[in-house]
Computed example of a mutant assay.
Amino acid sequence: MLLGIHHVALICSDYQGSKHFYTQVLGLTVLAEHFRAERQSWKLDLALPDGSQLELFSFPSPPARPSRPEACGLRHLAFKVADMAAAVAHLTAAGVEVEPVRTDPYTQRLFTFFTDPDGQPLELYQTPAETDC
């Protein structure tokens, strides 16, 4: 039935700041960008290398959504990386604060957390190389 995740949608408070973060810092590719005048809202479709997508929306004065500590709902969004050290170095060079890298006690994979401009928790999770599967 389910084939995978098609997209994840995020509402941002500063559209231009979030657009810069997701395209310039994280390197996602813009698929489409639309201004919806009737809603005073931007919609930005971004592609990840595996074909999944991230949608960014802006709305005038969106209400804050609790995300920490352990609020019900989306906990975080995790991105796969092949080289944790390189990914952390890239984010740090871009001025993004990254938590210390840890090892998942169940999978023995490296992971760390950082946030987007709105404080949305994001995770980097090092996955095995395709040849390791």
Rank of each mutant, 00 (worst) to 15 (best):
M1L: 12
L3M: 13
I5D: 06
V8W: 00
V8F: 10
A9K: 08
A9S: 14
A9T: 14
L10M: 15
L10K: 01
S13A: 12
S13P: 00
Y15C: 03
Y15M: 13
G17M: 08
S18E: 00
K19A: 11
Y22E: 04
Y22K: 09
T23W: 04
Q24V: 08
L26H: 00
G27K: 08
G27P: 07
T29Y: 02
V30R: 01
E33A: 09
E33H: 03
H34R: 14
H34I: 12
E38V: 13
Q40S: 14
S41P: 01
W42N: 15
W42L: 00
K43Y: 03
L44H: 03
L44Q: 02
D45S: 13
A47P: 07
A47S: 15
A47W: 00
D50P: 02
G51N: 04
G51V: 04
S52T: 13
Q53Y: 03
Q53T: 12
Q53C: 13
L54W: 01
E55Y: 09
L56Y: 00
F57S: 02
F57Y: 15
F57P: 03
P60V: 06
S61P: 00
P62G: 06
P66L: 09
R68C: 05
P69S: 10
P69K: 09
P69E: 11
P69A: 09
E70C: 11
A71H: 12
A71C: 12
A71Q: 09
A71L: 04
G73T: 00
G73N: 00
G73D: 01
L74M: 14
R75D: 14
R75I: 01
L77F: 04
L77Q: 07
A78G: 15
F79N: 07
F79K: 04
V81D: 03
V81S: 08
A82H: 11
D83K: 09
M84L: 07
A86N: 11
A87R: 06
A87D: 04
V88C: 11
V88H: 04
V88G: 01
A89M: 02
H90I: 01
H90K: 15
L91R: 02
A93W: 06
A94L: 03
A94S: 14
P100V: 05
V101P: 05
R102T: 08
T103P: 00
T103G: 01
T103N: 08
Y106H: 15
T107Q: 11
R109T: 03
L110Y: 07
L110T: 06
T112P: 09
T115P: 01
T115C: 14
D116E: 07
D116S: 10
P117A: 09
G119T: 09
Q120E: 08
P121T: 01
L122I: 09
E123P: 08
E123D: 10
L124D: 02
L124G: 05
Y125E: 06
Y125Q: 07
Q126N: 08
Q126W: 00
T127Y: 11
T127H: 12
P128L: 15
E130S: 15
T131Q: 10
T131W: 14
D132M: 15
D132V: 13
